[in-house]
């Protein structure tokens, strides 16, 4: 019996499945995000210490979570490419990199804009902030490395190796607030001491933006499959042209 990943190895089958899934995932994302934003701006109370500035957390925390999840997905896809040579693994890794970079940039900017009124500064070189900045540079490195190589297969392999080497940053980011004395507070636990009036919109926002990420990832994977089809059609056209030219020259 075929596993799900084996069944999805066929790009045509993936396109069919993703076309069916995409509207539902997108609609789910829109519903969750809209309801979460309603709760954030009209229901959730101000924090007893942060005041209304806590509202930034409802986009900062999901952005930070997606920055890490996206890199984990790239690492997993890279592993799938290098070890199992899964045909869609490289497509998945390539599609996730700009999305991860965007959410990491959001986490950095919203965190900085929260830091100014709360800490008195936009930026400090503490372990959490610095390691997330390194993660952002890693994303840029993956995108730059891939676009600098014309050979698609080689670019995929080299990017996968870099992604797997860079995976060491994930535990550093996660545990930086425990290992070092940082200005950044410990991780926000969705089930911890946060009051339900704030935890619910935070959780809904995280679910909504995670669904948005997957909708964008599916769409970006579809785009990449189409791009490769167009490329192979153009290559075939060039080869046919060369063959015809050689036949005429020979005859």
């Amino acid at each position: 019996m075929q596993t799900l990943t084996q069944r999805l190895a066929n790009p045509t089958r993936f396109m069919e499945l993703s076309r069916a899934l995409l509207p539902w995932v997108s609609a789910g994302a829109a519903l969750f995000i809209l309801y979460a934003m309603y709760l954030v701006f009209f229901v959730a109370p101000p924090d007893y210490q942060q005041g209304e500035t806590v509202k930034i957390m409802y986009i900062h925390v999901p952005s930070a979570w997606l920055a890490l999840m996206s890199y984990s997905l790239i690492a997993l896809s890279s592993f799938g490419l290098l070890v199992f040579r899964h045909p869609l693994a490289d497509v998945s890794a390539k599609a996730a990199a700009p999305l991860g970079a965007a959410f990491t940039l959001c986490a950095l900017i919203t965190g900085s804009l929260w830091g100014k009124p709360m800490w008195g500064t936009y930026w400090v070189w503490d372990a959490r902030l610095t390691s997330v900045l390194i993660l952002f540079f890693l994303y840029l490195g993956l995108i730059a490395l891939r676009s600098s190589l014309e050979d698609e297969a080689l670019a995929g392999k080299l990017t996968a190796v870099l992604a797997l080497v860079g995976v060491a940053i994930l535990p550093i980011i996660k545990f930086s607030v425990d290992w070092w004395n940082t200005l950044h507070q410990p991780s926000t636990g969705f089930t911890s001491s946060v009051d339900p009036s704030m935890r619910t919109p935070l959780l809904l926002s995280a679910i909504g933006f995670t669904l948005l990420f997957f909708a964008l990832h599916l769409k970006a994977m579809q785009n990449e499959i189409l791009r490769r089809r167009v490329k192979s059609l153009r290559l075939a056209e060039v080869e046919r042209g060369e063959r015809t030219f050689a036949e005429r020259a020979g005859g």
């Binding site: 209304e52 986009i59 900062h60 965007a102 959001c106 009124p117």
Partner: peptide, 20 residues
């Protein structure tokens, strides 16, 4: 009323909306 730090909150949501 988003309090004295409203500009930071709107700037955060604005930048976030722009990037996404």
């Amino acid at each position: 009323d988003l309090g004295p730090h409203a500009a930071f909150i709107w700037a955060s949501y604005g930048t976030f909306a722009l990037i996404i």
